[in-house]
Amino acid sequence: MCAAERGLAANSIAAYRTDLMQASELLAGRLTVADSELLGTLAAEWRALAASSVARKCSALRHFYGFLLDENLREDDPSPALPKPGLQRPLPKILEKQDVDRLFTQAEQATEMEGAPPTALRDLALLELLYGSGMRATELVSLPRNALRSDQPFLILKGKGGKERLVPLSDRARLVAARWRNLVDSDQPWLFPSRTGHISRIRLFQIVRALAGKAGIDPARVSPHVLRHAFATHLLAGGADLRALQTMLGHADIATTQIYTHVESSHLVALVNERHPLARRAGQTNRQP
């Protein structure tokens, strides 16, 4: 149902499965027949978890019991007994433009060193595509080798829920990706192959963090998703239209894209408070006569 009717991605389905299996273990295998009282005990079991994790688990269970109702496998829905954690969507982590510049400088220098391995160019291509297009990690690592065309300044991706979207590529990203593509065996189906298929999201995560460490940036601040956020935030700051950004990022709801307007606004407020000449007078204004 999740795949065929709701169109969820494989990663989302895997997360739902994990949440349901864990809840079943906590309820001693009585998940399907649990009543409201038994289901309500999960709140205590989940007390140490972050509100976002509890919200995801509750969502999985609500859809599960909704499915049982639709299939006439239950006559009631006990899910109202689940906790309702209050969620305030956090602002995404972003990198300043100077940090991005340091990342690219490090990656570019690695390709120019004498005897540089081919993986140096691969890492630069990954970085260019992450920051130059805003692709999700899964979309990037699973790019087919023939997805890039020299006469086509964009990619057609199949993202979450199997939905296709058009992703423009910067000239830089297209050029570096094409250089890397020329080093990949023509019989390879993937643009970024590994021994068993294409590189994993975990491997991409490791590559990005290793580049950050070499560039003198705290690796804990950098990830593929942070670079996707940086792409969106910096593009919006440069005057990009919110609807265009929604299309490029593949967001189903523009409310998801609007989070970047808050990021940019909070950055501007902080900038005014820290750098504006009147900020220096704040101490004088607050003095007692």
Rank of each mutant, 00 (worst) to 15 (best):
C2G: 15
E5T: 10
R6K: 12
G7M: 05
A10N: 12
N11K: 11
N11G: 08
I13T: 06
Y16D: 05
S24Y: 02
A28G: 13
G29E: 05
R30M: 08
S36I: 00
E37K: 15
E37R: 14
L39Q: 08
A43G: 09
A44H: 10
R47I: 04
A48K: 06
L49K: 02
A50G: 15
A50Y: 02
A51E: 10
A51M: 06
S52W: 00
S53N: 14
R56I: 03
R56V: 04
A60N: 05
L61M: 08
F64D: 01
Y65E: 04
F67K: 01
L68W: 02
R74M: 04
D77L: 05
P78D: 01
P78L: 00
P78W: 01
A81R: 08
K84G: 14
P85C: 10
G86D: 11
K93E: 06
V100K: 04
L103F: 03
T105E: 13
T105M: 13
Q106C: 14
T111Y: 03
T111P: 07
E114H: 13
E114T: 14
P117V: 04
A120D: 04
L124K: 05
A125G: 13
A125C: 10
E128P: 08
L130Q: 06
G134R: 05
G134H: 02
T138Q: 12
L140F: 09
N146D: 15
A147K: 10
L148Q: 09
R149W: 00
L155Q: 05
L155D: 03
I156C: 10
G159N: 06
K160P: 11
E164R: 14
L166N: 11
V167R: 01
V167W: 00
P168Q: 02
P168Y: 00
S170K: 07
A178I: 01
W180A: 03
V184K: 07
V184G: 08
D185G: 15
S186H: 13
D187Q: 15
F192M: 06
S194I: 05
R195S: 13
T196V: 01
G197N: 09
H198W: 02
S200N: 12
I202Q: 15
F205M: 08
Q206R: 14
L211R: 11
A212C: 09
G213C: 09
K214T: 05
A215E: 05
G216N: 11
I217N: 09
A220H: 10
V222M: 05
S223H: 06
V226F: 08
R228E: 03
R228I: 01
A230C: 11
A232C: 13
L236N: 10
G238R: 02
G238F: 08
G238V: 01
R243I: 04
L245M: 06
T247M: 15
L249T: 06
G250P: 14
A252C: 03
A255R: 13
T256I: 01
Q258P: 09
I259Q: 11
I259K: 11
V263D: 11
E264S: 15
L268T: 10
L271A: 15
E274W: 00
E274S: 12
R275T: 09
L278D: 13
R281W: 00
G283N: 13
G283F: 01
Q284C: 12
